[in-house]
Design a protein around this nucleic acid. Sequence first.
DNA 1: AATGAATGAGGGTTCATTCAT
DNA 2: AATGAATGAACCCTCATTCAT
Lengths: 206, 206, 206, 206
Amino acid sequence: MPDDRSASSAPAEAPSAAPLARPARLRADAARNRAQVLEAAAAQLAAPDGDLAMNVLARTAGVGVGTVYRHFPTRQVLLEALAADGLEALVAAAETAAADECSAGLEAVLRTGLRLQLTDAALGAVLAAQEPACVDTRALTERLESAVGQVLDRARTAGDVRDDVAPDDVRRLLYGLARAVSCGPGRLAPSARYVDVLLQGLRPHG
Amino acid sequence: MPDDRSASSAPAEAPSAAPLARPARLRADAARNRAQVLEAAAAQLAAPDGDLAMNVLARTAGVGVGTVYRHFPTRQVLLEALAADGLEALVAAAETAAADECSAGLEAVLRTGLRLQLTDAALGAVLAAQEPACVDTRALTERLESAVGQVLDRARTAGDVRDDVAPDDVRRLLYGLARAVSCGPGRLAPSARYVDVLLQGLRPHG
Amino acid sequence: MPDDRSASSAPAEAPSAAPLARPARLRADAARNRAQVLEAAAAQLAAPDGDLAMNVLARTAGVGVGTVYRHFPTRQVLLEALAADGLEALVAAAETAAADECSAGLEAVLRTGLRLQLTDAALGAVLAAQEPACVDTRALTERLESAVGQVLDRARTAGDVRDDVAPDDVRRLLYGLARAVSCGPGRLAPSARYVDVLLQGLRPHG
Amino acid sequence: MPDDRSASSAPAEAPSAAPLARPARLRADAARNRAQVLEAAAAQLAAPDGDLAMNVLARTAGVGVGTVYRHFPTRQVLLEALAADGLEALVAAAETAAADECSAGLEAVLRTGLRLQLTDAALGAVLAAQEPACVDTRALTERLESAVGQVLDRARTAGDVRDDVAPDDVRRLLYGLARAVSCGPGRLAPSARYVDVLLQGLRPHG
DNA sequence: AATGAATGAGGGTTCATTCAT
DNA sequence: AATGAATGAACCCTCATTCAT
């Protein structure tokens, strides 16, 4: 259930000033505009160049710049909106892994996290960011941290992971892994190996 | 002898089109300017923002823009010049490790490579780049690759490293490691641990 | 009716990639800005120096550079916009001449074409250009070519023009004539004579 | 004898401050440098782009910028030096035509003048210029004017040329002719025709 | 809500020219 | 004489952002 975001744990938070990566409700045309902008942004970001100029974005999305700014007041908000699907998928994978009895959850998290970053350029930016701009990105990263914590705990108990590995290490290493994969030729080939290396490296002892 | 670059044989080689990260000889004032630009560039790159505008650079270096362009026709050339010292140090470490009898060479390479990247922001950019812009950066990266190859061979023979690890994997993982370290709070603390993890992960078996 | 450009049929044509020398409709303030830029550009071009720097243009027109670029993405587009009035006048003259019964049409075309070039520095640039940048400049040059073709046909029939003269020769000779007039002292005096010479030279026989 | 420039009519003029398109005597290496610069400049000017940046020129000529400036203090001086050969050839043609008994001299001048302009881009610039920068360019243009005057006189007497054609008209029309030829496809084809047209147009009556 | 015109700071790059070596 | 390093004005162009319509 990847989309229960708005029914998530934090029950009745004070309405924050922080922007939403996904507004609760939207006029039909506004929703369509928003979707067009996101699609165009994903396309631009996926391009080899990879920049994300608001004017160009507006033009390729077929809307005015003002509309882009209405939906995404800062680039960070836009990035988080772009990353939302991937981040949710990662959270879902982590929560599933946390719920599983077996101790292979960490592997699932790493493989999924790497695959998603290679698919979705914005996800890396969000993983690397110190601080999310949107409240529900924060909610997701908190869920991620919590689920990864559980996964790590179980793995640690099973003797599969060193004692000194925290959820934030997983975030960082996952991000670094994607950078390692992306800075050379071939992306699929090294991915599996690098995850193997990382998993093996995270085991206790030496 | 890691630094015999300038002692190469042919005294009057055909002028190559590829720019040099470090020209062989320079008028005294030109050398001073060049050093000032490099110093200013290092400062700018080390700043939290981390951009590197040529005109700002010129101003803070106290020279005209044209002077910056004369010395560094492209940003990539500038980056490689900035990275040259660090890259040389890394090559030296790798060659020393290759010459060593003991099998701990890989560890030295990784620790040094990570430390240097954290010190010198340009080194990461050069490690990540597919293709160097300057001939002697290429020479250095080739020496690095070769030395790391020897280090890996010895380690593999000693049973310390998996079969499927190539020098290019070391380059990529080293770069990714620096990204992992840099995308969160604290840089010293995780560095040692992450190198441990990587070393352990590179060992054979699983 | 030489000016039915804007009265074309299709109300919602597919947006063409080619820039328009004159956009169909414009917000009031945009139209004013555009006119100011054109006025300033004409002034700069008419100056003895005759260059046309975009930033200077913006300043003298009292708008931002971006506004100049919005209206005129390239210098060629700007030139064509500057030349539009003159080119239209020339087309009108040629079409009138084509409609006339009498055989003196060519003379009118040459005199008008020369006079307009001397008045409007951009017209020469457009006449000299191989390929227009804007769709409606192209439309105008095509109308010009067609009308001049008719004029030539009639004149040829009347025995006033050599067989081997095509509309493109008229374009080139007209441009060359303006250069000849402009590269020396006095512009009115030689103009009439040079047109006489050209007309006489275009007559059959030898 | 195209190279008797320095032995020309003006017998003992006061030494002028104006630069010489060709210095009387030169150290051997200086002469070689000068020739290299001229060759490189001709190449640059002949390129489709056709600009003439001093720095680039110096580099392609294999000399320092300072050397270029020593030989050619202004761009105009350089242009005149580039045009010198062509201009001399034109002067020679005109003087030959002036010496001839027959009345076809004007045709030779026009054909030669057009051909030389198409060969040598700098010649057009010199023909178009109001005022030469170098004393011996001036000497040449004066010889040209004088010879063309004689040619015209003879032609006029023979009834081949209108009364109101002066040498300066020939200069301007010749320049304009080259512009007309150069602003379209094909250069050889129209050249002959356009000279015919001009010759015919210059005949008396109508 | 949406639009898109306008802005202008900002960064990029070139090149004519000077001058110390 | 020659060199070429240095200069910096001058242009180029983009793009984030605002705001009137």
